Amino acid sequence: MTKIGIILGSTRPGRNGEAVAKWVLDIASKRTDAEFELIDLLDYKLPHLDEALPPAMGQYSNPHTLEWAAKIGSFDGFVIVTPEYNHSTSGVLKNAIDYLFAEWNNKAVGFVSYGSVGGARAVENLRLVAGELMMADVRAQLALSLLTDFENYSTFVPTERHEQVLDTVLDQVVTWSEALAHLRQPVAA
């Protein structure tokens, strides 16, 4: 069965992303075409990138990197829930992504973002990063506005329209994850 990780890309106290990510998991868990798991960056104590060699070399030495690589390597695709900070994503999410290379390759990624303009600029930054990591970013995106989709900028209030857009994101991530599966498996000689 295809495995999709839902990455919660904020560790800020009082983060809006926690409610959003749990809602994404709740909606996704009703599906039968893939297995979904929440990956909370709070559970991975990744200091600012501290590996001596570039991630593309795949020679990780620190236990926290090895744990992170095993977790990310176990998935076929991802939905990243990202805030927008200063026209980009969170530093903790970018750092977590930068730790690895091969574990991201040939996997699909979709985005659920939030911010003053729906987190659109954070996702545009992440799409560039995804391309460098040989990830297939799907076209659909759920962009949530702090002004209209959160009460008092802090309580997430999803609507039926949000669920419909999320279903499209999930459809595309699962389909592309399955389509890329042959690239992730060793070719028989």
Rank of each mutant, 00 (worst) to 15 (best):
T65A: 10
A136K: 04
D50A: 14
Y44P: 07
S113C: 11
N105W: 00
R121W: 04
I72V: 05
L42G: 12
D137F: 14
E51T: 06
Y60S: 07
I7C: 13
A188L: 07
A102E: 01
Q172H: 09
P13C: 14
L180H: 00
A136R: 00
L146T: 10
H87K: 04
E151W: 10
V81T: 07
F101P: 03
H182C: 08
L46P: 11
N152M: 15
K22T: 05
K71S: 13
S74E: 01
N106Y: 06
S177V: 00
E35H: 15
D137E: 15
P54A: 15
S61F: 08
R12K: 13
N105D: 10
F101H: 06
E37Q: 15
W23S: 12
D149H: 11
S145H: 14
I27K: 12
R12N: 10
E151H: 14
A102P: 03
F75P: 03
L133G: 05
D167V: 10
E124S: 08
I4K: 01
L25N: 15
V92S: 06
S116W: 01
R139T: 08
T175S: 09
L144Y: 09
L66D: 09
L46I: 08
H64M: 14
S154K: 09
G73D: 07
H48C: 13
H87S: 05
P13F: 12
I97H: 00
W23N: 06
T148D: 12
S113E: 01
P63F: 09
A140M: 14
V169Q: 01
I4D: 00
